[in-house]
Amino acid sequence: MTTATTDLHRPATGPAFQGIGAGRKIKNAVATTLVALAFLVAVVPLVWVLWSVVQKGLQPILSADWWTHSLYGLRPYDDRGGAYHAIYGTVVQALSTALLSVPVGVMVGVYLVEYGAGTRLARFTTFMVDILTGVPSIVSGLFVYALWISILGFGRSGFAVSLSLLLLMIPVVIRTTEEMLRIVPNELREASYALGVPKWKTIVKIVLPTAMSGIVTGVMLGLARVMGETAPALIVGAYASSINLNVFDGNQANLPLLMNDQFANPETAGFNRTWGAAMSLVLIIMLFNLLATVISRLSAIKK
């Protein structure tokens, strides 16, 4: 009878779960390694770029003059002066871009989510926003040159730079607004309508305030992106080595233009100014990114 029991314990067929063959195992390991390596390949240039900027740009920005003086009247080899004219220009141009782009961008977002959902115009607009996202920055500079400077006859100024950044900024604001409006709970809208509140007031007083923190975050991130744009500034802006407080008139420097100007300066001072400007630009962009994160953490939509 012992044989019967052993028969019972022996499976009729081979084991259902067979070990994974060596070839498959090796393939799997190779794939895993390659995929992880790909990520490292992306990290290396990021660290390398940031390291180069810090290594070469930290020393110039440590002097107090860097933040309080312009390069007015300094010769190419004078290792003094600072970038405050360019920092001012960068910030002011970015802010005027924000002032112009936010109303338009938010209204387009409102249209796409609250009014146009599903209509043909809305679909076409969404497509065009995608196209606008892909418009090269140099083309936006050329467009502003063609319309604002060549046809309307205005001069090169900080404001013209803002106008060309506007084209790059608007799609960012639209995307963010759209995304944020979509996650506003519908119950809020319905509750408001049920109280007899008109649609426009519902949007202005209920929907937009709920989505506000997200929109602000998106705007800050977008600003951080457009601040470093150089191409449009080369076409419609003009570098000035002294401070110009008026964004609407005359040459106004910004950090990318300063870098471009000093890149051609072969002296040590030029090297320091270029990399110092790069470092300042990275710092300002980091500051804007940080602010964006803080704002979104402090006031996220509670579900």
């Binding site: 338009v104 209204m107 387009v108 409102v110 249209y111 796409l112 609250e114 009014y115 146009g116 115009l121 809305a122 076409f124 607009t125 065009m128 926003v129 196209i131 606008l132 418009v135 083309v139 936006s140 050329l142 467009f143 063609a146 319309l147 046809i151 084209l167 608007i170 639209i174 008109p198 649609k199 426009w200 007031k201 949007i203 202005v204």
Partner: peptide, 27 residues
Amino acid sequence: GDRVFRGAAVGSGAFIVVLIAAIGLFL
């Protein structure tokens, strides 16, 4: 209020379409 706001929203949407056309046209 509704009419004005709706008009502004639809206008902004159309503005984007016009903008792309304007870029091509003016260039």
